[in-house]
């Protein structure tokens, strides 16, 4: 009975994950794409829970669906959702090549995983109930992977500073651009 329940949850989560992923790629309005990505992230969190990675699932919902997607939606709303139909003007050689390359990546990944690890994928290791809990993750993070932890914090700091500099620079260059524009207009008249 429990088996059937787990399989049912898995099938629902996996299919909503794939469907919302395809929706992100195929919606013409970026706003709807961002909303579909929230569904994708939520169903991925369910898959993480089924793999007993509770802390990563919680982090996924908090960091991605909470913080990153809010930023995405704000920027999309600020820029105005400009429609961009993915198949506008009929299929071109570029789009044909894109579909071909994505299909090649898919086949490649599945063949390599099947060849290298095909027989060993059904023997899952025994885990205790503490696997994936915040306690265990925090202990591993601050002992074995301390360097990765510190480097991650530096990466986040550099990204924050970089985006502030980008924003300040673009505002300054915008005003000078307007000045140039005004001078050009004056020269024309």
């Amino acid at each position: 009975m429990a088996n059937v329940l787990v399989w049912t949850v898995w099938v629902i989560a996996a299919f909503s994950c794939l469907a919302s992923g395809i929706a992100v790629v195929s919606f013409s309005n970026p706003f709807f794409s961002a909303l579909a990505l929230i569904g994708n992230l939520a169903s991925l969190a369910v898959l993480y829970l089924l793999l007993s990675a509770e802390f990563v699932a919680a982090g996924q919902v908090l960091v991605y669906a909470g913080a990153v997607m809010v930023m995405f939606l704000f920027v999309t709303a600020y820029l105005g959702g400009r429609a961009d139909a993915p198949w506008a003007g009929g299929p071109s050689w570029q789009q044909f090549g894109a579909v071909l390359a994505a299909g090649a990546i898919l086949v490649e990944v599945i063949v390599v995983i099947g060849l290298k690890a095909g027989g060993r994928l059904s023997h899952e290791a025994r885990i205790d109930s503490g696997f994936g809990s915040p306690h265990r993750i925090g202990r591993v993070f601050l002992t074995d992977h301390l360097l990765a932890f510190e480097i991650t914090s530096i990466v986040l700091l550099v990204a924050a500073v970089g985006s502030v500099i980008l924003g300040a620079h673009s505002r300054r260059s915008e005003t000078t651009g307007e000045l140039v524009h005004n001078e050009e207009a004056r020269a024309r008249t």
Binding site: I22, A102, L106, V109
Partner: peptide, 8 residues
């Protein structure tokens, strides 16, 4: 793998 290919 499907997700990765969709993103690509």
């Amino acid at each position: 793998a499907f997700l990765f290919a969709t993103g690509a």
